[in-house]
């Protein structure tokens, strides 16, 4: 019944899934890793006009261990990349990552010696937001995309892999 090792999906799983996903998607706790301009636009989203609280994601946590959505807002230079990796690893599963803005997604205009050319080279990313910086509406759109991703999620997918690659 429910989650079992055979991989079958039972009626209980889907019902529980729906409940859990509903809860999860409406109470995302973002951890803003705001380094540059995008961090300021993220501040706008928090403030009164755009008000991210309408999407249940206003509980900003600066501790990776308390959050489930990592928003990488801004460029990531070589000195910061190990920090970002560590923060990602410290977040508990399930976790999602938004790469916000051109710099985080691809390096943007900074094709220089010290800027990482896209954080997805080193950590997994779920949603990319275009723009330099993305408008607050785009950030909300990215949040909705993450929510849609969560809707399709299932406890079944979080089966701990056996053997190789298990952590």
């Amino acid at each position: 019944m429910g989650v079992d090792r055979s991989g079958k999906v039972g009626w209980l799983t889907t019902t529980v899934d729906a409940l859990v996903n509903w809860g999860r998607k409406n109470s995302l706790w973002p951890m803003p890793f705001g380094t540059a301009c995008c961090g300021i636009e993220f501040m706008s989203v928090l403030a009164s006009r755009h008000d991210i609280a309408r999407f249940g994601a206003e509980a900003i946590r600066f501790s990776p261990r308390q959050s489930d959505l990592l928003i990488v807002a801004g460029r990531v230079p070589i000195k910061l990349m190990p920090v970002l990796t560590r923060i990602y690893e410290q977040m508990p599963e399930p976790k999602w990552v938004i790469s916000m803005g051109a710099c985080a997604s691809s390096g943007g205009v900074f094709d220089t010696y010290s800027v990482i050319q896209g954080i997805d080279n080193f950590i997994p990313v779920d949603v990319y937001l275009p723009g330099c910086p993305p408008r607050p509406e785009a950030i909300l759109d990215g949040l909705i995309l993450i929510q849609k991703l969560i809707e399709k999620d299932s406890l079944h997918h979080y089966k701990v892999p056996q053997g190789e690659g298990a952590t």
Partner: peptide
Amino acid sequence: FKVVKRSIG
């Protein structure tokens, strides 16, 4: 740099 993969699922 170190490449991190998704750990589960």
